[in-house]
Protein backbone atom coordinates (compact mmCIF):
# COMPACT_ATOMS: atom_id res chain seq x y z
CA UNK A 1 0.00 0.00 0.00
CA UNK A 2 1.30 3.40 -0.88
CA UNK A 3 1.53 6.13 1.56
CA UNK A 4 3.22 9.40 1.86
CA UNK A 5 4.26 11.51 4.73
CA UNK A 6 5.27 15.08 4.95
CA UNK A 7 6.07 17.42 7.76
CA UNK A 8 5.76 21.13 7.42
CA UNK A 9 7.24 23.24 10.12
CA UNK A 10 6.15 26.70 11.02
CA UNK A 11 2.76 26.90 9.48
CA UNK A 12 0.61 27.79 12.41
CA UNK A 13 0.81 30.53 14.86
CA UNK A 14 1.70 29.41 18.32
CA UNK A 15 -0.96 27.59 20.15
CA UNK A 16 -1.51 30.29 22.63
CA UNK A 17 -3.01 28.75 25.66
CA UNK A 18 -5.76 30.37 27.42
CA UNK A 19 -4.28 32.71 29.79
CA UNK A 20 -6.38 34.33 32.35
CA UNK A 21 -9.77 35.79 31.93
CA UNK A 22 -11.17 39.15 32.73
CA UNK A 23 -14.13 37.47 34.08
CA UNK A 24 -16.34 38.85 36.70
CA UNK A 25 -18.61 35.88 36.82
CA UNK A 26 -18.73 34.56 40.31
CA UNK A 27 -19.91 31.10 40.94
CA UNK A 28 -23.29 31.31 42.54
CA UNK A 29 -23.05 30.10 46.07
CA UNK A 30 -22.97 26.35 46.19
CA UNK A 31 -26.36 24.98 45.78
CA UNK A 32 -27.49 21.56 46.64
CA UNK A 33 -29.51 20.80 43.59
CA UNK A 34 -32.88 21.59 44.99
CA UNK A 35 -35.52 19.65 43.20
CA UNK A 36 -38.19 21.93 42.02
CA UNK A 37 -39.71 23.20 45.24
CA UNK A 38 -42.24 21.67 47.45
CA UNK A 39 -44.48 24.61 47.08
CA UNK A 40 -45.41 23.51 43.66
CA UNK A 41 -48.84 22.54 42.95
CA UNK A 42 -50.69 25.09 40.96
CA UNK A 43 -48.85 26.92 38.25
CA UNK A 44 -50.74 29.93 37.03
CA UNK A 45 -47.54 31.01 35.38
CA UNK A 46 -46.99 34.51 36.50
CA UNK A 47 -43.89 35.82 34.90
CA UNK A 48 -41.35 37.02 37.38
CA UNK A 49 -38.96 37.34 34.54
CA UNK A 50 -36.80 39.78 36.44
CA UNK A 51 -36.26 37.37 39.23
CA UNK A 52 -35.80 34.50 36.84
CA UNK A 53 -33.08 36.16 34.85
CA UNK A 54 -31.17 37.25 37.88
CA UNK A 55 -27.96 35.39 38.47
CA UNK A 56 -28.49 35.31 42.15
CA UNK A 57 -31.95 34.12 42.64
CA UNK A 58 -34.13 33.51 45.61
CA UNK A 59 -33.76 35.12 48.96
CA UNK A 60 -32.66 38.71 48.46
CA UNK A 61 -34.93 39.51 45.59
CA UNK A 62 -37.90 37.83 47.15
CA UNK A 63 -37.85 39.87 50.31
CA UNK A 64 -37.73 43.08 48.32
CA UNK A 65 -40.54 41.94 46.19
CA UNK A 66 -42.53 41.12 49.27
CA UNK A 67 -42.15 44.61 50.63
CA UNK A 68 -43.06 46.28 47.42
CA UNK A 69 -46.00 44.26 46.44
CA UNK A 70 -48.07 43.80 49.47
CA UNK A 71 -51.39 43.96 47.76
CA UNK A 72 -53.02 42.75 44.65
CA UNK A 73 -51.24 39.41 44.61
CA UNK A 74 -53.24 36.34 44.06
CA UNK A 75 -52.60 33.46 46.38
CA UNK A 76 -50.95 30.42 44.91
CA UNK A 77 -47.68 29.16 43.62
CA UNK A 78 -46.18 30.82 40.60
CA UNK A 79 -43.37 29.52 38.51
CA UNK A 80 -41.33 31.82 36.37
CA UNK A 81 -40.29 30.88 32.92
CA UNK A 82 -36.98 29.06 32.82
CA UNK A 83 -34.25 31.56 32.24
CA UNK A 84 -31.04 30.79 30.44
CA UNK A 85 -27.83 32.13 31.78
CA UNK A 86 -24.29 30.97 31.37
CA UNK A 87 -24.78 28.32 34.00
CA UNK A 88 -27.81 26.78 32.38
CA UNK A 89 -31.48 27.18 33.13
CA UNK A 90 -32.74 28.77 36.30
CA UNK A 91 -36.37 28.71 37.24
CA UNK A 92 -37.80 30.70 40.10
CA UNK A 93 -41.00 29.89 41.93
CA UNK A 94 -42.79 32.03 44.46
CA UNK A 95 -45.57 31.22 46.85
CA UNK A 96 -48.16 33.84 47.67
CA UNK A 97 -50.36 33.63 50.74
CA UNK A 98 -52.54 36.44 52.00
CA UNK A 99 -51.27 38.63 49.19
CA UNK A 100 -47.66 38.27 50.29
CA UNK A 101 -44.78 36.30 49.03
CA UNK A 102 -44.19 33.73 51.68
CA UNK A 103 -41.60 31.60 49.92
CA UNK A 104 -39.35 31.77 46.95
CA UNK A 105 -37.30 29.01 45.47
CA UNK A 106 -35.14 28.56 42.44
CA UNK A 107 -34.14 25.44 40.60
CA UNK A 108 -30.67 25.31 39.18
CA UNK A 109 -29.15 23.68 36.16
CA UNK A 110 -28.43 20.05 36.53
CA UNK A 111 -27.29 19.46 32.98
CA UNK A 112 -25.55 22.71 32.19
CA UNK A 113 -21.92 23.29 31.59
CA UNK A 114 -20.79 24.51 34.91
CA UNK A 115 -18.37 22.55 36.97
CA UNK A 116 -18.62 25.09 39.69
CA UNK A 117 -22.24 24.98 40.54
CA UNK A 118 -23.79 21.94 39.06
CA UNK A 119 -23.72 19.61 41.95
CA UNK A 120 -23.21 15.93 42.00
CA UNK A 121 -21.86 15.06 38.59
CA UNK A 122 -22.43 11.38 38.15
CA UNK A 123 -19.49 10.83 35.86
CA UNK A 124 -16.06 10.64 37.43
CA UNK A 125 -12.65 10.06 36.03
CA UNK A 126 -11.15 6.91 37.46
CA UNK A 127 -7.72 6.91 38.97
CA UNK A 128 -5.12 4.54 37.66
CA UNK A 129 -1.39 4.02 37.68
CA UNK A 130 0.62 6.29 35.45
CA UNK A 131 2.17 4.12 32.75
CA UNK A 132 5.52 4.64 31.11
CA UNK A 133 5.71 2.74 27.87
CA UNK A 134 7.69 2.80 24.70
CA UNK A 135 4.86 1.52 22.60
CA UNK A 136 4.58 1.09 18.89
CA UNK A 137 2.40 4.02 17.82
CA UNK A 138 1.59 5.86 14.60
CA UNK A 139 1.39 9.30 16.17
CA UNK A 140 1.90 11.03 19.47
CA UNK A 141 -0.33 13.55 21.17
CA UNK A 142 1.40 15.93 23.52
CA UNK A 143 1.99 19.53 24.32
CA UNK A 144 4.39 20.58 21.59
CA UNK A 145 4.41 24.30 21.12
CA UNK A 146 7.64 25.18 19.42
CA UNK A 147 9.66 23.96 16.48
CA UNK A 148 12.41 23.09 18.90
CA UNK A 149 10.21 20.96 21.06
CA UNK A 150 8.88 19.30 17.92
CA UNK A 151 12.40 18.34 16.91
CA UNK A 152 12.87 16.69 20.27
CA UNK A 153 9.54 14.91 20.21
CA UNK A 154 8.64 11.33 19.62
CA UNK A 155 6.45 12.51 16.74
CA UNK A 156 9.51 13.94 14.98
CA UNK A 157 11.23 10.60 15.35
CA UNK A 158 8.21 8.86 13.86
CA UNK A 159 8.12 11.34 10.96
CA UNK A 160 11.77 10.89 10.12
CA UNK A 161 11.39 7.12 10.29
CA UNK A 162 8.65 7.31 7.66
CA UNK A 163 10.11 9.97 5.40
Amino acid sequence: MRRSTAAAVGTLTGAALIVGVRLSVQPVAPIAAPPAVDLVDSTPSASPSKAASSKKPAASSSSKAAEKEETGLKDGVFKGKGSQNIYGTVQVSIKIADGKITAAEATYPTTGNSATINPGAVAKLKQETLQKQSANVAAVSGATYTSKSYQESLQAALDSAKA
Binding site: M1, R2, R3, T5, A6, A7, G14, T146, S147
Partner: peptide, 26 residues
Amino acid sequence: MGTAVSIELADDRPERELRELIADVC
Protein backbone atom coordinates in the same frame (compact mmCIF):
# COMPACT_ATOMS: atom_id res chain seq x y z
CA MET B 1 6.57 30.88 16.97
CA GLY B 2 5.70 28.03 14.72
CA THR B 3 4.02 24.71 15.15
CA ALA B 4 5.13 21.61 13.32
CA VAL B 5 2.45 19.81 11.33
CA SER B 6 2.84 16.15 10.40
CA ILE B 7 0.54 14.75 7.75
CA GLU B 8 0.22 11.10 6.89
CA LEU B 9 -1.97 9.85 4.10
CA ALA B 10 -2.65 6.13 4.07
CA ASP B 11 -4.74 5.98 0.93
CA ASP B 12 -3.81 3.65 -1.87
CA ARG B 13 -3.24 6.29 -4.52
CA PRO B 14 -0.36 7.36 -6.72
CA GLU B 15 2.41 9.22 -4.96
CA ARG B 16 1.85 12.29 -7.15
CA GLU B 17 -1.78 12.62 -6.03
CA LEU B 18 -0.82 12.19 -2.41
CA ARG B 19 1.80 14.92 -2.71
CA GLU B 20 -0.78 17.23 -4.26
CA LEU B 21 -3.22 16.55 -1.39
CA ILE B 22 -0.52 17.38 1.13
CA ALA B 23 0.35 20.56 -0.77
CA ASP B 24 -3.31 21.55 -0.65
CA VAL B 25 -3.41 21.08 3.13
CA CYS B 26 -0.27 23.19 3.49
